[in-house]
Design a protein around this nucleic acid. Structure first.
Lengths: 328, 328
DNA sequence: TTGTAAGCGTTATCAT
DNA sequence: ATGATAACGCTTACAA
């Protein structure tokens, strides 16, 4: 484990000069620079980053909070973020909050103890009032989560529009009885629901309580939703499912029970995951352009870290599109 | 940004005592301990981890190398690893190598510069001789990659058995013309191929060059494989596809071209991903117990970091199982 | 252009 | 049981 001192000794120069070469400062003569580089090479020297960070050098690490990386939406999002971060020499620390408020707060220690240069919240469990105090330790931005109280940059998709689009599409297909699935009460869900309610309201339809489902996340949850729908005395004829996974579960279970999709039950997914195109019938879904939002968010974070941008309460809204397939 | 000094001042004690409380050393009287804790609480003090790491305290970070987190096998694996790591207070640094030898080597800087306590290689691009020099900087272990030269712990699945199982199953179904798909020449692929070759050899069958496909990873690649098979003058009647994604692509394209699966073409997947059960026909596949291997690997790594286990050249082999569905 | 030396915030070794 | 104080490896005034 060699230090700067060893390199200096070997090169016959001072530690300061070695440090200057490492940080490629100006005012180092070419020959000394070469001498230092040779010495570093020979010893296989690598600077100790803890020591560097003590001197307020950046960690070049960014924490990304997601509820669960195994969720394909998040794995694709993080993949895009990592790709972009890497081009700027940043590493990602993966934080799965598992929809746990306390676990989420724990991760902010990464900021307060200076282990990361910033935090990207691709999912958020706590209210802004809990999170705000951490902003004085470093930049925090939101990705695809919208909290109007949060006084930081929010890169996001227009979820209201997403909910509206999907529902409107079903209305145009002639459906009047449209069920709605959501996960927990995240900003994403809340806004999508707004869009859903807006669309049915425009059509003069009242929301029906038994058709509003909560805490629906997985394929298995989707299966259960179908079973519930099947058991209803007055079942809906269409479902806005909130994710392609849930849609897949509903469709698969429906087929198993000899319901025809979309004739007996039309289903709209969300995310345009690979599976949406593979199922029979293929799923009508809403594309969120995961890669774009990942890139954009990372760009914003790195600009804030590099102080070429300020982290004010602004929304960067990316487009969204409906992809019509066979399930509607 | 408060330091230990501020806490000491506030509590009217020395820095040493504060440090002792932080690290809960013995020989601190109860009342002083409380005084220090109150002071820390009031100031909202959090120890600076760079400073701690300078004193050779562990980073509590582990780097996980995967080729691409968006690959469902890896996202589930990393999910399991993160879950286990979190229970021991460790964070994961996500490293996507993107099948790039140079990029992979870059990540070892995390070890040499003491930014992580260890590295888990869930994918490996470089030969062991390139990786070995880094072992003196910290523990490196392999997960689901088998390199007999690597003198470190390898937690893995019996890929030879996996290839053998899948092929044997097709043979038992009466197939004599079995194609084989693989990704790049990773140890996983090489071993699976061994199993495949062993199975057909036992049945007295010679491998056919046109039925061995390489660099097949995605759904789209699977589609292409079907097109190639279709164009063959002497096409196989079954395919060992190497992944459920590839299998899904093959099956979907086959259906589009009015081939019946499994009658015209039987397909075996790999991984037992959710999609395997949702497709029509459902995919016969091989379950790798992703969660188990994630947990096991993380346990081993943490034990090595905690010095309760030595990192010698041993294999920890986890079971694998065939799940028969409708595609064969 | 190069070197000297003072910190950065901890922990650990001595004393006391 | 508690307190000085010397490291840890690096960066950066300040001097030369």
């Amino acid at each position: 484990m060699y230090t700067i001192k060893d390199v200096a000794l070997k090169a016959g120069l001072s530690q300061a000069t070695v440090s200057r070469v490492i940080n490629n400062h100006p005012y180092v003569s070419e020959d000394k620079k070469i001498a230092v580089k040779n010495a570093m090479e020979e010893l296989g020297f690598v600077p100790n980053s803890s020591a560097q960070q003590m001197r307020n050098v950046k960690t070049k690490k960014i924490a990304v909070l997601v509820s669960r990386i195994a969720n394909p939406f998040f794995s694709h999002l993080v993949d895009a973020m990592e790709k972009r971060a890497a081009t700027y020499g940043f590493q990602l620390i993966l934080c799965n909050t598992r929809i746990d408020k306390a676990k989420e707060l724990e991760f902010f220690k990464l900021l307060t103890s200076k282990q990361v240069d910033g935090i990207i919240m691709a999912s958020v469990e706590n209210h802004w009032s809990e999170i705000e105090p951490f902003t004085k330790y470093g930049p925090i931005i939101y990705c695809n989560e919208y909290d109007p109280d949060a006084t930081v940059t929010r890169v996001r998709l227009d979820q209201v529009e997403g909910g509206y689009m999907g529902t409107k599409h079903l209305l145009e297909k002639g459906h009047l009885k449209i069920a709605y699935c959501q996960g927990n009460d995240s900003s994403v869900s809340v806004n999508r629901r707004k869009g859903y309610l807006k669309a049915i309201a425009e059509a003069g339809i009242e929301p029906v309580k038994e058709w509003m489902f909560r805490d629906v996340f997985t394929i298995e949850d989707g299966r259960n939703i179908f079973r519930k729908i099947q058991a209803l005395s007055n079942p809906p004829t269409a479902v806005f499912s909130g994710s392609d996974e849930v849609a897949a579960g509903i469709i698969h279970e429906a087929k198993k029970n000899s319901w025809h999709v979309p004739k007996d039950l039309a289903v709209v997914g969300f995310d345009d995951q690979p599976i949406a195109e593979l199922l029979d019938p293929q799923i009508t879904t809403i594309n969120q352009f995961t890669t774009d939002i990942g890139y954009q968010t990372m760009d914003v974070m790195i600009e804030i870290i590099n102080k070429t941008r300020i982290n004010d309460a602004q929304d960067i809204i990316l487009p969204i599109e409906l992809i019509e397939r066979q399930s509607t």
